[in-house]
Design a protein around this nucleic acid. Structure first.
Lengths: 193, 193
DNA sequence: TATTATAAACTAACGCCGTTAGTTTGTCAA
DNA sequence: TTGACAAACTAACGGCGTTAGTTTATAATA
């Protein structure tokens, strides 16, 4: 047999569809080939290997997250922007659960070059933090902290850790964000003196 | 052939040794059997399957973490205890990197009953937080936040995210802990009024 | 001491995975 | 019409976890 109109873009998009539906851990090239009406080996005319495919899919996932965060902060600044961003991040993790997991997965495999896209996805976060009156060094530390809180919270929630107490998860997230905001306000005040 | 003195405890300990040396992702039953001088199928006289094995190994890993945290906070309280705990947690993640990864891995697989051991490992954290004058509801929220910060920070560091800036990672961790402490002090003061 | 039951080792195979080599086939250009 | 080439195929590999069925060493019994 010859041409069936298969191409890399179509393969990547179908891969993402499967990942979104069934999760990275249940993804397989066989499943992907089936969905495309093709034999597994045929995929290798278009991709080098599964990681090569995951690289492209990972970029897509990161761009989706970036757009989501960008929308959340657009034409906002300081606390309003930061709260909006934090909730957008949490919503993304909830609504696109498998995609979020996938982003975390590809970050554990260290693909050469994916870092640039991780950095890109963080631009909205850096922009929000830049609207505060803190120096550049402090901004880095607080950026790291914010990322830790956002991702850490989601990981804990996902692993079922929060089920141990009946307290509202929503409320816990508010406490977390307020903690971060209080401290950054404090840093601003101390700077003025 | 018959007896070679194989038993479950020995199997589990060897599994942990391999996981510590090579990481969960490079672990295999074949590797384990080889190390034990046995064929892979022979393991099944002592374990039901690989997850059954990981369950026991996971409990061991959690207990190791718990002991580590317990040592860090013993005969300390409030800020001193919390800082000691936070650094012990980070040190554990650094020094027992593969074991820490393994703990995170088994928490994504939701093994029935492992939750109790996760809760146990958290007792030192709860104890430290109990030395602050905050109500029980607030304690839950702050416990969740602290866990999010500690684990989130390690995840970010591990995935290489912190490499994007040359700023000290140690300093970032201090900023994170201080942020948490400042807010909990604030909560105490507000309560007094 | 000889026999037997049983648990613990074995071999061999299964189905799944990603991947590769070698073959056929369809299409496009000469 | 023919020839080249890319895109599909089939068949196989080695690795994984797992299972079924077989042999074997030991411990209990006669």
């Amino acid at each position: 047999m010859g041409r069936k109109g298969l191409n890399r873009e179509h393969i990547v998009k179908t891969a993402i569809k499967i990942i979104e539906e069934r999760g990275v851990m249940n993804f397989s090239l066989h499943l992907l080939a089936d969905e495309l009406g093709v034999k597994t080996a045929s995929l290798y005319n278009h991709i080098a290997n599964i990681n090569d495919l995951f690289y492209d899919a990972g970029i897509y996932a990161l761009k989706t997250l970036e757009n989501c965060l960008r929308d959340a902060v657009s034409s906002k600044e300081r606390d309003e922007a930061l709260r909006s961003l934090a909730y957008a991040y949490l919503d993304f993790a909830h609504e696109k659960r498998e995609l979020y997991d996938f982003i975390m997965y590809i970050r554990t495999q260290n693909h050469v070059g994916i870092d640039d896209f991780v950095t890109s996805a963080n631009i909205p976060i850096v922009e929000v933090l830049s609207s505060y009156d803190i120096d550049k060094t402090d901004l880095v530390h607080r950026h790291r902290l914010l990322r830790s809180i956002l991702h850490g919270f989601i990981t804990q929630e996902r692993s079922g850790f929060f089920k141990h107490s009946p307290e509202s998860i929503q409320k816990s997230y508010e406490v977390a964000i307020n903690c971060f905001l209080n401290d950054i306000h404090n840093a601003e005040n101390n700077r003025e003196e």
